[in-house]
Write a protein that binds this DNA or RNA. Sequence first.
DNA 1: CTGAAAGCGCTAACAC
DNA 2: GTGTTAGCGCTTTCAG
Lengths: 342, 342
Amino acid sequence: MSHPRAGGAPVTMQDVARAAGVSVMTVSNVVNRRPGVRAETRERVLEAVGRLGYGVNLAARSLRQGRTNLIGLAVPEIDVPYFGLLAGLLVRRAAEHGYEVVVEQTGATREEELAALVSSRVRRYDGLVLSAVQLSDADSDLLHGDMPVVVLGERRYDRPVDHVTMANVEGSRDAVAHLIARGCRRVAVLGVSSTGPVDASSQRTQGYREALTAAGLPLDPALERPAAYTLEGGRQAVHRLLDEGVAVDGVFAHTDLLALGAVRGLADRGLRVPDDVRVVGFDDVPWAAHAVPSLTTVDPGHDEMVEATLRLLLGRIAGRRGRDEHERVVARHRLVERESTA
Amino acid sequence: MSHPRAGGAPVTMQDVARAAGVSVMTVSNVVNRRPGVRAETRERVLEAVGRLGYGVNLAARSLRQGRTNLIGLAVPEIDVPYFGLLAGLLVRRAAEHGYEVVVEQTGATREEELAALVSSRVRRYDGLVLSAVQLSDADSDLLHGDMPVVVLGERRYDRPVDHVTMANVEGSRDAVAHLIARGCRRVAVLGVSSTGPVDASSQRTQGYREALTAAGLPLDPALERPAAYTLEGGRQAVHRLLDEGVAVDGVFAHTDLLALGAVRGLADRGLRVPDDVRVVGFDDVPWAAHAVPSLTTVDPGHDEMVEATLRLLLGRIAGRRGRDEHERVVARHRLVERESTA
DNA sequence: CTGAAAGCGCTAACAC
DNA sequence: GTGTTAGCGCTTTCAG
């Protein structure tokens, strides 16, 4: 059996020290690759480690050091492609810095996002990445606890907090300008919400309006459609739009999911993309490139966002910024032209 | 400021006990909702907890209790829809039992899956869910360490290990039988691999062959195509198939991702689904229902699998099964008929 | 119903 | 180079 003591009491440094005839401190030095241990001693210790199947007790180490090497990632739902993409990138990059990522699902409700912040569960993290959608400015007071927090995407805060976000207005403007350049004159926007003036939804709607205005096209309230940020939401919004007899030759959806749902909804009514209606999304999730037709969309700069998030978070964990010094990073976006607007 | 002592030393039970004029033990009893504390005492303690902003130190609790309430989920890549779905379900269900989930990305290499098992990082989990794709029978020896492990999906093991899997052969047989019932006579299979006799790929290929044979149709090696389990893999496999001039009127893809890639590849060559070619996938990822056309696929019984996984894992954590008692659960599958085979 | 003492396994600080 | 001591914050055990 390759795992001695399996099933018995866990092997401690004490056990290893005894077996190797050294002190626990020497074992600790070897295990942590600290310098200043004679090669021969190291050998003896490592032999004992291997023979006994020793592994550090990370709870003890955490208690002693006051750090866990864990960071939390609070997202609404991990199976939404955008958040899966995010989680994947973050897990990979965090690992490079010796951190692991615990996923919290907030379910996209304000209550649950707050819960993630106050909950004792969160206390075990060295830092928290909060991909917030519903958290309001008022609540960001809560971001001032002891826990280093970086808010990622989807919203700009007036309150001071480390924040990594994307160019929602500019990206949306580019997307809609692209539709117009392709000849669209009746462009609908999907995903309009009324929850507040500073969130991603309003910003993307604003970018939409700016692009229309810049092109000298009129704003038509009938073209500004609310929709849940889901495939089904996009599909149904398009159904309603068409059922009301609104003329449309272009669709800008607030998210790729919505856009793909819109393509579906158009197909349901016998409309072809891009022949009858052109469609643009936002996010550049992996699917966008491979959908039929492939989806033109805005890449908000995922890599840059995740990198910046980690940089800010690790900096704060290391105490490199004061409690009242906050940074905000806006990633560079890019319009990715594909078949849905060909 | 709602978070007193923010920035100062962490608040301990000692602090709370002092502030409330009780012993640490009473604080512990209140915090852990243990019975046998007078209501008035509890009030006093809770008031102090709130005022000081106390939160339990989970490292200390873990050290003392010998448990972390953390379970690890090792998957190849979290941004693959199937694993995102899995993670979402597991996170939700684990939370119901007071557990949190740490995501490990193995990158689908054998080395990394082994690393996840041996690594000291894993020591912090009470248990590990291993969604293995490359781990071989020989390696499953490693599953016999102290860590409770449940292997989820994708592979059947001869070695004893708790294992939750899906009806790969039966599901594939149903999928292909469905194509045949719809009139297909030249059915290709995408995702055939040569890595071994007992993995998901071989099983799904086997189901394919059984269905053809049962229908009295010939097996044609030209119809059995290797393909990476990605969108691009499916797309290219279809391109090669058509470029070789192989006649096809149905496609069974080993995964939905492959199937959606296949739909894309067919569209590239001007073929319509289901009019010219019918397509069936496997997994029933959320996208399958909303793709254009929506995808007929095999739901392998995700919910049942996750539920069983957690049941087995928690049972093992609780020591309810001996080291040599292992369970295997095969979830009930279901063919979901949609537009791609209409 | 409440308190005091012991110790989980580790590492920082200092002694040899 | 290596050992000794102390204590991180909590809960288990046993005493009141």
